[in-house]
Each structure stands twice: as structure tokens, then as C-alpha cells.
Simulated assay, not measured.
Amino acid sequence: MNSIYRFLGALFLLCLCLNNPSFAQFSNPFGPDKTVAEQRQEILKKNEQILKQLYSAEPKAKDLIEKSVGYATFSNFGMKILIAGGGSGSGVVINKMSSKPTYMNMAEVQAGLGLGIKSFQNIFIFQSEAALNDFVNSGWTFGGQVTAAAKYDKDGTSYQDATVVAPGVLMYQLTDSGLAAEITGKGTKYYKDSTLNK
């Protein structure tokens, strides 16, 4: 019986939040009046802000990005209410070979108990063209939780505290308190934005 009450309570809170104007602002950060060009500009501006935050938290990350074939930055807003939660966000992939940005979205669905709101930024660094193209074109899914333990490659080269999340793909995660030691990305899907890439 208690589980039924918890479920009904979660649904009630979810309805309240979805009807709250402040939550609507986060779930649609651009607002209804932004043009495609303005949305692109906001994402690129956010990209610069995220890189600035990353370099402040981990200055050596700049060297990794400079040596990469490309990188991606994403800004996420997430909410978790009692038994279920989720989040959404937007970002951009920069292919340094072509300098052409690819605008992408992210969607996250979580399960578990808890109540809270979280915001974070994800930065991906691509060490090969194949890894970058796979991320962009295959609708990459991040399905787990990893700790920042894999800091070196097989030849002993430092990854500057980045975490290896896929072959040829390194990742940093920034939170309000700085660089995350444990990266969370459960059930997160990354995919192209069909509107912004026209």
C-alpha cells in the first residue's frame, strides 16, 4: 500500500513541476520566440562558457582538446522525483578538421528513489575521426556510471584526469562544485537536432 502512495505522490509532484513556469523554462531553455539562428548562437556561446569552466577546473584539458580531432559540449538540466526522473539538454560537436558545428540534443531517463534537481555539463573529446563520426551519426547512448580511474592509455600517456567512456572517446563532467570524480550518464541518449542542422 505504501508503494502505491509513493507512486501517486510522485505523479502529483511531477504534474506540479511540469505546470510550473520555472520548470518549463529549463525544459525549453531557448523559449518559444527564439529563431533557429538565435538558438545556434546560444549553444555556441554556451560551448565557450563550458570550455572556460573546464579549463579553470582542469587546465591540462586544454592540451587534450588541442590535440584531438574534435570535441563536444553539452549542458543538461535534470530532475528526479521520488521514483523516476529524467532530463534534457543541448550541445554541439565541433569537428576540428572541417570546423563545422553539429548541433545535438541529449535526453536522459533515470529510475530510482530520490527527490532533487541537478544541472551539469558534459565535455567529450574525440581522439579519432571514426569515434567522432560514430558519436554524431549513430545516436550514441551512454548507459552507465564510471569513475575517473582510466587516466592513462596503454602506452602510459596521461589523459589529464579525463575518463575513457568509449574507444577513442574521453569525457569530463562539470557540476556546480567543479570537476566530477564519478561521471554519471545512465540511460543518456545523444542525437542530432534535425531543426538546427538544416
Rank of each mutant, 00 (worst) to 15 (best):
E66R: 14
K60P: 03
D161M: 00
S128N: 05
E129T: 10
A181R: 04
V165W: 00
N2Q: 15
K118M: 14
A24G: 11
S75R: 15
C17W: 05
S90L: 03
L82M: 07
I50Q: 03
Y103S: 05
K67N: 14
K96A: 03
K96S: 02
F77R: 02
I94R: 06
T102W: 01
G156P: 02
G31D: 06
L132R: 04
S98I: 13
K189Q: 10
I81S: 06
N137S: 14
P21A: 05
M79I: 15
N137V: 11
M104Y: 03
M104I: 04
P32W: 01
K34R: 11
A181C: 00
L196P: 01
K198Q: 13
L11R: 09
I117L: 15
T157P: 01
Q110Y: 09
K62P: 01
N133T: 07
I81T: 11
T147S: 14
S177H: 09
C17Q: 06
K52W: 06
I123L: 09
F12Q: 11
M1S: 14
I65M: 09
A166I: 00
A181W: 01
N47F: 05
Q25L: 13
K67Q: 14
K186Y: 09
W140C: 00
W140T: 02
Y159P: 00
D161L: 05
F120C: 03
S56P: 01
S194C: 04
A61R: 00
P32G: 11
L18A: 12
V92W: 04
T73E: 00
A57E: 13
N133L: 10
V136F: 09
G91M: 09
I123T: 09
F74L: 12
V92I: 13
E129V: 15
K192H: 03
Q53T: 05
Q110R: 15
E66S: 12
N122G: 04
G31V: 03
Y55F: 15
R6M: 10
I183E: 02
N95G: 06
G143D: 10
W140H: 11
L196T: 08
L16D: 02
G116M: 03
D176C: 02
K186H: 08
F126S: 08
N122S: 12
K45Q: 07
I81H: 05
A181M: 07
D176N: 14
P101M: 04
G78T: 13
I123P: 02
Y5H: 10
S88K: 13
F74W: 09
G85E: 06
T141S: 15
S3C: 08
Q173P: 00
F74G: 00
I183W: 01
G116W: 02
K192C: 04
L82N: 04
I50M: 11
T163Q: 11
T195V: 13
K67E: 09
C17V: 11
L16S: 03
G114Q: 09
T147P: 01
M106N: 14
Y172A: 01
I81L: 15
F77V: 06
A162F: 02
K34Q: 11
A111G: 15
M104F: 05
I117V: 15
L179A: 00
A130N: 12
Q110I: 15
K118A: 13
R6W: 06
P29R: 07
K46S: 10
L8F: 10
S27R: 13
Q121C: 08
F126L: 07
L8I: 12
G86Y: 13
D161S: 06
G168N: 09
I43K: 02
D33G: 07
F120L: 08
I81C: 07
L51E: 06
L8Q: 12
M106S: 12
S177R: 14
